[in-house]
């Protein structure tokens, strides 16, 4: 029982981070129809910003228990990159999808080296936060409190995002733009602003996901290209463009990896892809996706 709970919470922790990144990916795809290969790069950037902010805060004497808001802010702060990057992506908005994909690949290359220039190539971590939060013991399991808090934070973000999209006026404009950009524009929606906000939000979500992992695992320049692969698995399983799909896909991928890591570590990623292939064969549009036109 104890081991079961430990594996499940470890999987859900990973799922929470994956959900944040995948939600950003889905949001940008849903509205702008751009598949952002650089989603992982923003995740990495968020992680490194989290390293800097976290160690600075600890150095200034901020109690480690306040690390969660500090890291969330640091990861979210890279949203400032959103508007300028979106401005460049807009130049290829009406062009072939392959060109859009390539432009985001160019971003991957640039950001990977930009991170190396600023933070160097060696892994970076913030010590002292993970342990400060301690562990809870229940039913024979030891679960780090940090993992539970991240889970909670992701849940809050998911609910907040849902409320933002469904209940607010801007959310309505955003969904209208996703549905039909030209129609929305002709009804007076400032679609340029919507795009800028959506992309920045996507960047912020990825950045927060990255910032939340640095207390428990190190930030490396390779984490960007590694995460993209998992984020893609999440959105393929869940269905491209669907928020519910991102949530379901993230939980499936997170749990699957955690279980595979215990049962048969060699097959960790392969197990994820076996599910991807199975979903594609049985439900090509993903679990929550609309069938592709």
């Amino acid at each position: 029982m104890g081991a079961f709970i430990e594996v499940t919470t470890a999987g859900l922790f990973h799922a929470a981070v994956l959900f944040l990144v995948a939600a950003g990916l889905q949001l940008v795809f849903g509205v702008q129809r751009i598949l952002n290969l650089a989603c992982g790069s923003f995740y990495a950037l968020g992680a490194y910003c989290g390293v800097t902010a976290g160690s600075t805060a600890l150095g200034l004497g901020v109690p480690p228990l306040l690390a969660l808001p500090v890291l969330l802010l640091a990861g979210g702060a890279i949203a400032v990159l959103g508007p300028p990057v979106e401005r460049v992506l807009r130049l290829v908005q009406d062009r072939d999808e392959s060109l859009q994909l390539l432009l985001t690949f160019a971003l991957v290359l640039m950001l990977q080296d930009a991170v190396r220039m600023v933070w160097g190539s060696s892994p970076r971590q913030v010590d002292g936060i993970y342990l400060a939060y301690g562990q809870v013991q229940a039913l024979g399991a030891r679960v780090p409190v940090w993992n539970l808090l991240v889970l909670l934070a992701a849940l809050v973000v998911a609910l907040g995002l849902g409320a933002f999209l469904k209940r607010t006026n801007f959310g309505r404009l955003l969904r209208a733009t996703a549905e039909n950009r030209r129609m929305a524009a002709s009804l007076g929606v400032d679609t340029g602003r919507v795009y800028a906000v959506v992309f920045s939000l996507g960047v912020a979500l990825g950045g927060m996901g990255g910032a939340l992992v640095v207390p428990s695992s190190a930030a490396t320049p390779e984490m960007a290209v590694e995460l993209v692969v998992e984020a893609f698995a999440v959105v393929v399983i869940g269905g491209l463009g669907s928020m519910g799909g991102a949530l379901a896909g993230a939980v499936i991928v997170g749990l699957l990896r955690a279980v595979a890591l215990v049962v048969w570590p060699e097959l960790e990623l392969m197990a994820v892809y076996a599910v991807v292939v199975a979903v594609l064969l049985l439900r090509p549009a993903g679990l929550f996706g609309k069938p592709a036109a």
Binding site: V92, L107, L109, M110, L111, A114
Partner: peptide, 13 residues
């Protein structure tokens, strides 16, 4: 890689 990324972006644009 940074330079190559810039080259790629310029070509696409």
């Amino acid at each position: 890689r940074l330079v190559l990324g810039v080259v790629l972006a310029l070509i696409v644009l």
